Simulated assay, not measured.
Amino acid sequence: MSIEIKVPSVGESITEVQIGAWHAEEGKWVAQDSEIVELETDKATFDVPAPLDGNIVEILKKPGETASVGEVIGYLEEAERPAGIDEPEPAKTPPKSEAASAPSKAKEATSNSEERVMPAAARVMAEKGIKSSDIAGTGPGGRILKEDVLNHQGSAASDNGTFREEEIVPMSPIRKKIAERLVEAQSNAALLTTFNEVDMSAVMDLRSQYKEMFLKKYDVKLGFMSFFVKAVVDALNLFPQVNAEIRGTDLVFRNYYDIGIAVGGGKGLVVPILRNAERLSFAEIELKISDFGQRARNNKISLDELQGGTFTITNGGVYGSLLSTPIVNPPQSGVLGMHGIQERPVAIDGQVVIRPMMYIALTYDHRVVDGREAVVFLKRIKEALEEPTRMLMEV
């Protein structure tokens, strides 16, 4: 008897998904609860598990096609485990001594895995039978881009003339949603951006002083983002308009701070939320952000973790950005942009000195936040980062 593989309900507002990769082929046996197909919505990517042991007898929807919630996308026929297929070993929790090195090990493994190949590049490589080991990636972190594959193929085909090709790829639900929200923000809000710069010496000195003790105690590195989250919460507490939103003809103010942290994922940029950031310690912030980053790369961020948020922080500096104008995530009224740290000459007490400087940018909805408030809000973040003890003393 065949069992229907259906698109499960994944959220009240979601009625359609896009089929991603099938992890199983027709005629192949799968174990119960193993991941058989990847589904993508406009907010997140998730996998559908096999309801029981059996063989995939038919696949109705191919990768890239859309399907409605409840629609049948394939059939599974119950069958016992074939001889020669071992039962998977249960996952083991690494001892604490290994936990501290997990992020670095994961990073090392990622650089040598399929995740360093971007999706468009992977499709061309599969079509042309090209191995990732044959291509030098030029993208961030050595990632292989589609252009790298085409250049490689073009070089190989240079004796037969110029290699020119176009590829039409449907926009993913996440990319469509990002496009819609960016246009919505530009069309429906009065956006302005104000800039400042921060001397990062004090933060860098604190990180250098406590990084080993912090790592030993919490099994996570002390990064810059926890300082920025703390500084943002401090500034939002003084300027609640930046944490507010327009709802109809009303302004909604909050006494809590749910901070969205933009992280790069396997399917694009996602913004999981640090709920009640005002209650979190430095260690809790770093642990949550590290967890977000790892799960975003594997498309394991849940829908609930992406919904809501009262303010957003995005860090273009990790990609080499020196200065940018971030776009507000509606219905929020503000977003802080971090950028790269560069040693630059600055004048202090009449002397020219070299300091590690970072440009920061605040884009805000002028319907909610006045220019003076925005400027002083950003100045407060600058002061909190240049003198971190001010946040502890609340002065």
Rank of each mutant, 00 (worst) to 15 (best):
F239R: 03
F239L: 06
F239Q: 07
P240K: 12
P240V: 12
P240E: 14
Q241M: 14
Q241G: 05
Q241T: 11
Q241S: 14
Q241L: 10
V242G: 03
V242D: 03
V242N: 11
V242C: 15
V242T: 10
N243G: 13
N243M: 08
N243L: 10
N243E: 11
N243V: 05
N243S: 05
A244Q: 10
A244N: 08
A244D: 06
A244W: 07
A244E: 14
E245Y: 06
E245V: 08
E245Q: 13
E245L: 13
I246Q: 06
I246L: 15
I246N: 10
I246S: 12
I246P: 08
R247F: 14
R247Y: 15
R247C: 05
G248K: 07
T249D: 15
T249Y: 09
T249P: 03
T249S: 13
T249F: 13
D250N: 12
D250R: 06
L251F: 15
L251Q: 11
L251R: 08
L251Y: 14
V252T: 11
V252R: 04
V252M: 11
F253Y: 15
F253H: 12
F253M: 12
F253L: 14
F253S: 09
F253I: 07
F253N: 06
R254D: 08
R254S: 10
R254K: 15
R254Y: 15
R254H: 14
R254A: 08
N255F: 08
N255V: 07
N255Q: 14
Y256S: 09
Y256R: 10
Y256M: 07
Y256Q: 08
Y257G: 00
Y257C: 01
Y257K: 00
Y257I: 01
Y257W: 07
D258P: 07
D258W: 12
I259H: 11
I259M: 06
G260P: 03
G260W: 01
G260M: 06
I261D: 02
I261V: 11
I261P: 01
A262Y: 11
A262V: 06
A262N: 11
A262M: 10
V263S: 09
V263K: 10
V263Y: 15
V263I: 14
G264F: 03
G265W: 00
G265P: 02
G265V: 01
G265F: 01
G265N: 02
G265D: 02
G266R: 08
G266K: 10
K267N: 02
K267M: 00
G268N: 11
G268K: 07
G268S: 12
G268C: 11
G268I: 14
G268R: 05
L269G: 00
L269N: 01
L269V: 04
V270E: 12
V270W: 06
V270S: 05
V270I: 15
V270C: 06
V271M: 01
V271C: 02
V271I: 13
V271N: 01
P272N: 07
P272D: 08
P272C: 04
P272W: 01
P272Q: 09
I273S: 03
L274R: 01
L274V: 03
L274S: 05
L274A: 02
L274F: 01
